[in-house]
Amino acid sequence: MFLNSVVIVLREVLEAAVLVSALLALARTVHLGQRWLWLALPLAAIGVALYASFLAVITDALDGAGQEVLNASLQAGVYLLLLPILVLACSAEGRRQWLTLLMTLAITCAIVRECAEIHIYVRAFAALGEHAAAVWAGSALGMGIGISAGVLVYGALRAVPQRWALPACCATLALIGAGMIMQATMLLEQVDWLPDQAPLWDSSTLLSEQSFVGELLYAVLGYEATPGPLQVSLYVGCLLLAGIALWWGSTGRAKHAVLD
């Protein structure tokens, strides 16, 4: 129970923490400040509370596929929000309020998606009296590792020289976004909304998804040991789309510089 708690909580927290860290580092790089985060956190708390309150309705919806479809939608939503964020962050000054709004929404979606899972898991298993200590200790350990890794990712992105800070933040966000689409694909495959396909490769012997590095790569890159052709195609497609968004934003910046 302890290990299960660690793995479940770590996987969810790590993903949200890395996304929050990358967005915070990006905000700092484009001199956006961090106040928007204080709006995102209460919004996310409300979202998690609503998710947990309507869990039964959500689970029963869409012939029992409601929860998976909602989670996949939230992850796809985060990716779709990251695209304009990349464009705006790479373009010249201005439209800061839009960037702030999009970042607030992206963090809210990510936290609702990740924390709702944790909330449901902890509430369900902590109710089993004999396992409560193991569940709480495992959750605390998983959360500690996830948040610490997020803080260190933020520190690492902050330590990148000024010249490379923006590309580093944008590249991290592009990878996280593509990873989220990969996970959304897996969820939809689970409920047969997408066809289940034979894996293209199996790298679990090289790097297990359950190892800490595997979890970290899952959070940052969407690492999947046995991905299907659709997952790989979508992952590459999303990365390309993010690359186009970055290029578009950078072109806007260049044009602005010429006009100036």
Partner: peptide, 21 residues
């Protein structure tokens, strides 16, 4: 302090996890 606490937490928790196993 934030970075040190994060590094300490990460290392000690991962070590605790290995210790647990």
């Amino acid at each position: 302090v934030t970075m040190l606490v994060a590094a300490f937490t990460l290392v000690s928790f991962v070590a605790a996890l290995n210790g647990y196993r």
